[in-house]
Nucleic acid binder design. Structure first.
Lengths: 147, 147
DNA sequence: TATTGTTATACTCTATAACTATA
DNA sequence: TATAGTTATAGAGTATAACAATA
């Protein structure tokens, strides 16, 4: 089991630097988002649905840490825009299955590429050595965020 | 002038990995915040005031990308809690000077240490080599976020 | 009787418009 | 007449409570 101790003052300083950098960069990235016609919560739900596959409204609400009535609203708007498909649940007639559509993928791809373009330009201000360090650490940051 | 090109497919993949990791980690960190009695906007304004020093309500509104009436509300609440001091502006009687108090620093320190503790525990799940990579990249990420 | 999802309603946060005081 | 800040009011977005349908 990979477990690190992180006891030194250098470790503590790095954790703090990492936290501040992540929060600020995320805030700036959020301001960059492409399609202003969808709220953050709507975009996020759509992304989860795309990553994790079809699920019921209740499951999606739990995934997004949102209450069921809020998810009802979000799904209604996404459905209206043709960004999700709703189908009856195979086993339980109370539930539904929410899934993505072709337009979802286009939409998310556009959003991703806009964020990446902005970040690429920002990273262009680093020198070669700095970028090499950050590039090497990117997969670790991703793993950290998802564990 | 340090400028990198970032043209390779590996660069593009790293940018995307970085973006996803940063966004997700920031979202999880936000859920971790200590004092739930202050909103995100209130915490952020307080942090800016602490980092940048005393300023007028208008300056603070511009810094936070918020409209003046919203800042009026935020400042009123912070003042009520003893987290900011309000003083007449030396030159212009229309303006005020907003500054931090002793309680501000305590408050921000508590918030920082809670975030760091959570992140330290999470980073404990990495192995030594991964943590070494991330620790080395932390100052670069910070620089990127602030440039 | 418990669970899934929806409707009704209230609260929080933010914005725009109108106003007051000062420059 | 222009500017700094406030008050009044409206619009998102989310939550809790009450309800309908199904298990």
């Amino acid at each position: 089991m990979p477990q690190t101790t992180l006891g030194t003052p250098e470790d503590a300083a790095a954790v703090n630097t990492l936290r501040v950098g992540v929060m600020r960069l995320a805030r700036r990235l959020r301001h960059q988002r492409a399609d202003r016609s969808l709220s953050l919560a709507e975009m996020s739900a759509l992304g989860t649905l795309y990553r994790c596959g079809p699920m019921t409204p209740g499951e999606l609400a739990r995934s997004e840490h949102v209450q069921p009535p809020s998810m009802t609203r979000i799904i209604a708007l996404l459905h209206e825009r043709g960004l999700v498909r709703l189908e009856p649940h195979p086993d339980d007639r109370r539930q539904k299955t929410v899934s993505t559509t072709d337009r979802t993928e286009e939409m998310l791809a556009a959003s991703r590429s806009q964020g990446n373009a902005w970040l690429t330009e920002l990273a262009g201000g680093l020198d070669e050595e700095e970028w090499a360090l950050l590039r090497a650490a990117a997969p670790v940051l991703h793993k950290l965020a998802h564990q």
